[in-house]
Design a protein around this nucleic acid. Structure first.
Length: 863
RNA sequence: GCCGAGGUGGCGGAAUCGGCAGACGCGACGGACUUAAAAUCCGUUGGACUUCGGUCCUUGCGGGUUCAAAUCCCGCCCUCGGCACCA
């Protein structure tokens, strides 16, 4: 062991040993209790960033802690390797997406190894590998056979200029990110998973995820968005047809004065046909359709609509209702048509005011009379029904039921449930993804690729095209094929690929048997390891990824492939890594080195103007406030970086980067190092303290502190994952060792206690700073790493204090404190408090009204 | 607008069940060591007043409950995150 702490040499030494000993390899073993710890796998974007470091450090601490607790811990890592950035890089740098991806994986794998994470690398997987996605294709075919997938027309963002489909993140303020042209909507045939079949089940089980943060559960519930209401059919005036409408407010139906339909609604143009409105309606529909969704739903939307030239009849009032098409009506929700009740819905109210439509009050609030002439806004609250025929006088909450009954009785509608959640569109008109295993034949129609022909391999010889258009449709060697059913040589393959969320919806199951070649995974292994005991990742995946993963697991269960329904028992969503930003009014965000320190504060290197410093924001390249993990590892080592990430804040909160904080972490590790380096020789023949013999003085103190620390650290990790307080407890122990070392070391029992304290500090620190811990452990005379020993256990008898501190308050204010033997009763404590010198002086004979004694803690005297 | 989380020293944060507010770290200040600096070690460090014994104030703001409130209740302000024309 060197005198000076040199992280570089210590870390490379132990990483070599760990690898050579295959320390992180695990196998399913029915004899052992398992623990599956999973962190969300990264997209191989090029380099590990601070967010990854934080996420994976949190996971690594838990994995190592659980191993020391005796669990068989599965802790795998892999790559979410399909996705658009690879295509963008391909176009920008003329590298093939596969080359780019695999290079990035190599870089990032070595970065993760450099951080000392205890992954079982034998289980590494990359979703772009055909051995992975072939099973996804296999499942797709199974789902197709069962009708769990279907094809329908749907809109995509389309850039006419680039002749390509754009993902939502490629649409910036309604414009194409590449060419700046306005983005439109194009209707294409696409594949959908029927996730809505599981909407109720997914919603119901939200309340059975006690290990999930409430926030995430709420977000999932809102996303699923179940509404109870009714479907009401409004006949057309000409009697040809009817418009079904979904509403949650059937109690207001007597106040419905007009109808609003989504511009995409198939009936709109039919209704307008032949009327004098036809051309105007066509122009309106075209205009709204072409707007991208972000714009249509942006803040400054204006409600607008147009009369389609036809009327329907309110079946309750026989009123003739003009039919409008309006930009705020959404085809995707409900039936795409809304019965408008301007008196009791704010949107309808604004629309009615704008187009001068009738407003009829049908819900009257208590103690108030609403007048349509003077109303400033809709009345959406409760009240009593008026102008509602047989339902007059009914409270509106009761009317909801009564009118629903009436609808069903008269057969003009029915109770209905509507979900905000829509089926999962998985088609991507992209190259770098898993091919959808389907063939189109003129004779047989849609034919799934037979199991024996799987996988449908994404051809790696495709040439990437400018503008981002997928090369697959034009690649005959891929797209041209023969029909597996009839042999027709003119059949064509589906050239769309799957949403990358599909890959990430089952990778955690694949990890259980990543090399299994007979199916998606080995049932036996999945049965042993799943479900995931602890899942850790960013809050940005709180909705989609987690919902899709929950859905997929249900599908697998329905196929009898797994026994569990929920994949993740406990979930931790870690906060963002943030850092202060520096902004120049002229040059925008600056790197720290671009801001020059001067007399009047910092100035911009480029223009000399004053810069604005301080706003703390999420680290990102575009804000120029990133710090590079590599640089920090070089300077301080992985252990310091890990320590800082955990110490700066509890995991679920945001972490504010601080260079000085990193220095502090480094200083602490040096402090621990020196403690061992300076005393290992004196401790060579000293055994750890075994208990039994009575201790006195500082040795007793240190022994107590040691076990108090073990208890605190264990509790902080076990129940709360609060590593920051766990670390501060170890810091306190180290401070105590420093303060007491000479007094304690002078006698043999004391030296034993000293060794125990030191060993406890090293062991407790080992999940956080594993390299340093192993080195110190070895220096203390042990063979083998700390990971292979048991987590320290706390001796309750060592913790018990013989003297306790009692705080004395007078009227709730602290006035004195004293020590007393821990075994005395409340009455003795009360007596001691009242006779305490300072208290007696303060009371000065005033009558005591009341004395409250809190066991072994506090006395409050009320006068 | 709706939903959720949060607001504590100069800063990050602690106080786990209503019982000493400010653990631990950073920064700052002082001292030791040194020719000097760095590193290290040891102190001090919420604010105001102080006769140096203490006293008063202090957990976003205003009320309340309680012997006792950072913690519970009511009202308000601010910050962050999510959803957002959902009928």
């Amino acid at each position: 062991m060197q005198k000076e702490y040199d992280p570089e040499s210590v870390e490379s030494k132990w990483q070599g040993i760990w690898q050579q000993r295959q320390l992180f390899r695990v196998e399913a073993d029915a004899e052992k209790k398992k623990y599956y710890l999973l962190e969300m796998f990264p997209y191989p974007s090029g380099n590990i960033h601070m967010g990854h470091v934080r996420n994976y450090t949190i996971g690594d601490v838990v994995a190592r802690y659980k191993r020391m607790q005796g669990y068989n811990v599965l802790h795998p890592m892999g790559w979410d390797a399909f996705g658009m950035p690879a295509e963008n890089a391909a176009i920008a740098h003329k590298v093939h997406p596969a080359t780019w991806t695999y290079q990035n994986i190599d870089t990032m794998r070595s970065q993760l190894k450099r951080l000392g994470f205890c992954y079982d690398w034998d289980r590494e997987l990359a979703t772009c590998n055909p051995e992975y996605y072939r099973w996804e294709q296999w499942l797709f075919v199974k789902m197709f056979e069962r009708g769990m997938v279907y094809r329908k027309k749907a809109f995509v963002n389309w850039c006419e200029n680039c002749q390509t489909v754009l993902a939502n993140e490629q649409v910036e303020a309604g414009l194409c990110w590449r060419c700046g042209q306005e983005v439109g909507q194009k209707e294409l045939d696409q594949w959908f998973f029927r996730i809505t079949d599981y909407a109720d089940d997914l919603l119901e089980h939200c309340d059975r995820l006690p290990g999930w943060p409430d926030k995430v559960v709420t977000m999932q519930k809102n996303w699923i968005g179940k509404s109870l209401g009714a479907e009401i059919r409004f006949p057309l005036e000409n009697g040809n047809s009817e418009i079904p409408v979904f509403t949650t407010r059937q109690d207001t139906v007597f106040g419905a004065t007009f109808m609003c339909m989504a511009p995409e609604h198939p009936m709109v143009m039919k209704l307008a046909a032949g009327t004098e409105q036809e051309e105007k309606v066509r122009a309106f529909v075209e205009r709204i359709r072409f707007q991208d969704k972000a714009k249509r739903t942006s803040d400054d939307y204006e409600k607008e609509g147009i009369f389609v030239g036809a009327y329907c009849i309110n079946p309750f009032t026989e009123r003739r209702m003009p039919i409008f098409t309006a930009n705020f009506a959404l085809m995707e929700y409900g039936t795409g048509a809304v019965m408008a009740v301007p008196a009791h819905d704010q949107r309808d109210f604004e629309f009615a005011c704008k187009y001068d439509l009738d407003i009829i009050v049908v819900i009257q609030p208590k103690g108030e009379t609403l007048d349509p002439q003077t109303m400033a806004e809709a009345h959406v609250e409760e009240g009593v029904l008026v102008r509602s025929g047989p339902f007059d006088g009914l409270e509106n909450v009761k009317a909801l039921e009564a009118i629903a009954d009436y609808l069903e009785h008269k057969n003009i509608g029915k109770r209905a449930v509507n979900f905000r959640l829509r089926d999962w569109g998985i088609s991507r008109q992209r190259y770098w993804g898993a091919p959808i295993p389907v063939i189109y034949c003129d004779k047989c129609g849609v034919v799934p690729v037979p199991e024996k022909d799987l996988p449908v391999i994404l051809p790696e010889d495709a040439k990437m095209l400018e503008g981002g258009k997928s090369p697959l449709p034009a690649l005959d060697s891929f797209a041209k094929t023969s029909c597996p059913k009839c042999g027709n040589p003119e059949a064509r393959r589906e050239t769309d690929t799957m949403d990358t969320f599909v890959e990430s919806s089952w990778y955690f199951e694949r990890y259980c048997s990543p090399h299994y070649s007979q199916g998606m995974f080995d049932r036996k292994d999945v049965g042993y390891w799943m479900p995931v005991d602890q899942y850790i990742g960013g809050i940005e995946h709180a909705i989609l990824h987690l919902l899709y993963a929950r859905y997929f697991t249900r599908v697998l269960k329905d196929f009898g492939l797994v026994d569990h329904k929920e994949p993740f028992l406990r979930l931790l969503t870690q906060g963002m890594v943030c850092k202060e930003t520096i902004k120049c009014p002229e040059h925008g965000f600056l790197y720290p080195e671009e801001a020059v320190a001067g007399e009047a504060g910092r100035t911009c290197k480029h223009c000399g103007g004053k810069v604005e410093v301080g706003r703390i924001e999420k680290m990102s390249k575009s804000r120029r406030n990133v710090v590079d993990p590599n640089t920090l590892i070089e300077k301080y080592g992985a252990d310091t970086l890990r320590l800082f990430c955990l110490f700066a804040a509890p995991p679920e909160r945001g972490l504010d980067w601080s260079d000085q904080g990193v220095e502090g972490a480094y200083r602490f590790l040096n402090r621990v190092w020196r403690l061992v380096a300076d005393h290992k020789d004196r401790l060579r023949d000293v055994k750890p303290f075994e208990g039994g013999k009575p201790l006195a003085g500082d040795a007793r103190e240190l022994h107590r502190k040691t076990h108090q620390t073990i208890k605190r650290v264990t509790n902080d990790i076990e129940t709360r994952f609060h590593f920051n307080t766990a670390i501060s407890a170890v810091m306190e122990l180290v401070n105590s060792i420093y303060a007491l070392k000479e007094n304690v070391l002078s006698d043999p029992a004391g030296a034993s206690v000293f060794r125990s304290a030191l060993e406890a500090a090293v062991a407790l620190l080992s999940p956080v700073a594993p390299h340093l811990a192993d080195e110190l452990w070895e220096a203390l005379g042990h063979t083998g790493g700390v990971l292979e020993v048991s987590w320290p256990s706390c001796r309750e008898d060592a913790i018990a204090e013989e003297q306790i501190l009692i705080v004395v308050q007078v009227n709730g204010k602290v006035r004195s404190r004293f020590h007393i033997r821990a075994d005395v009763g409340d009455d003795a404590i009360k007596e001691a408090a009242l006779s305490d010198e300072r208290i007696a002086a303060r009371l000065a004979g005033r009558p005591v009204k009341k004395v409250i004694v809190v066991k072994k803690k506090l006395v409050n005297i009320v006068v």
